[in-house]
């Protein structure tokens, strides 16, 4: 297992380098630059040139990338041009908010998704199955941005149960978690349902029936347990998705987090911050994939054996 972990970690290095190049290129190739955001009415073209040079934006892009990469490898993501703080400090300030939102949304979508998928599988082709899957399909097709506004209107404005926005109280977490989590239930439920139906056809399940075990014990004690392997894989892949999905929700709910920081910085072309935020999201996706692979390998020895 240790060899497998080391191998998977080494595989991440070239991926990380390529991802960092893509992130750097994308933001620098988008029209606009941060100096425009800093120019005041009355400032002169000479001041613009001086600022451009001060932040190293007059250097060729490969040189700028090299400087950024060298600093990044030392754990320094640079200084925000507009926000004028170390990028690592800005990320450290915002990441916990995004993580909290993401973890809670992931937990919500996982628990509800597994329960819904299991119910649909147990009551296959019944009205319960059809109702659950229809509701899930509806939930997954509604954009989270719009869903967020609908939740605000219903639960904050009409019912007054939760605050409209912000991060000042714990109750302010409920609606953003729902807005992100509801969209994620569909995938978990569908995977759970398909996996359970697949496992239900296996020989060992016939044996369990033959032994006289109750239907519920077979379904939830054995079939669901075995069906969780693909669910875990899906969940690990969703770690990055959840953080990325929080971008618009943080904006709608005026919450602190990587998403809010990313949008603010992107609008002002604050390159170091945008690069730092995108890098964090990319790392989350890479780590999610890694965790998924490791968990899968731990649960099913055939996975790690096949990769050696």
């Amino acid at each position: 297992m240790l060899g497998y972990i080391i191998k998977r970690l080494l595989q991440l290095i070239p991926v990380f380098i390529v991802v960092s190049m893509i992130i750097f290129s994308i933001i620098h190739l988008v029209p606009g630059d941060p100096i425009d955001s800093m120019m005041q009415i009355g400032s002169t073209p000479e001041q613009r040139a001086e600022l451009t040079a001060r932040y190293g934006l007059d250097k060729p892009l490969p040189v700028q990338y090299g400087i950024w990469l060298a600093k990044m490898l030392r754990g320094d993501l640079g200084e925000a041009i507009i926000l004028r703080q170390p990028v690592t400090a800005l990320i450290a300030q915002n990441l916990p908010h995004s993580l909290l939102l993401g973890v809670l949304a992931l937990a919500f979508s996982t628990i509800v998704g597994i329960v819904a998928g299991a119910l649909a599988a147990v009551f296959k082709d019944s009205w319960i199955d059809r109702s659950v899957m229809t509701l899930i399909l509806l939930g997954s097709t509604v954009p989270s941005f719009w869903l967020g506004l609908l939740l605000i209107l219903l639960f904050a404005v009409q019912l007054g149960w939760f605050p409209v926005s912000g991060a000042r109280t714990w109750s302010a977490l409920v609606l953003p978690v729902l807005a992100i989590g509801l969209g994620g239930i569909a995938l978990v439920a569908r995977v759970t349902r398909v996996a359970m139906l697949d496992i239900a056809r296996r020989d060992f399940v016939m044996m369990l029936h033959a032994k006289g075990l109750s239907r519920w014990r077979i379904q939830f004690g054995h079939i669901l347990r075995h069906a969780l392997l693909p669910v875990v894989t899906i969940l690990s892949l969703r770690i990055g998705w959840i953080l990325g999905g929080a971008v618009t929700i943080e904006y709608v709910f005026a919450r602190p987090g990587l998403g809010s920081l990313l949008i603010t910085s992107l609008n002002q072309r604050d390159y170091p911050v945008v690069q730092g935020c995108l890098l964090m999201l990319a790392i989350a996706v890479m780590l999610g994939t890694l965790i998924g692979d490791l968990v899968q390998a731990a649960m099913d020895p055939r996975v790690r054996d096949s990769s050696t």
């Binding site: 605000i152 404005v157 007054g160 605050p163 409209v164 904006y251 709608v252 005026a254």
Partner: peptide, 13 residues
Amino acid sequence: IAEDSTAFLELKT
């Protein structure tokens, strides 16, 4: 609050 709709709803509630 960057989103005007959210700010409006905050005042309303």
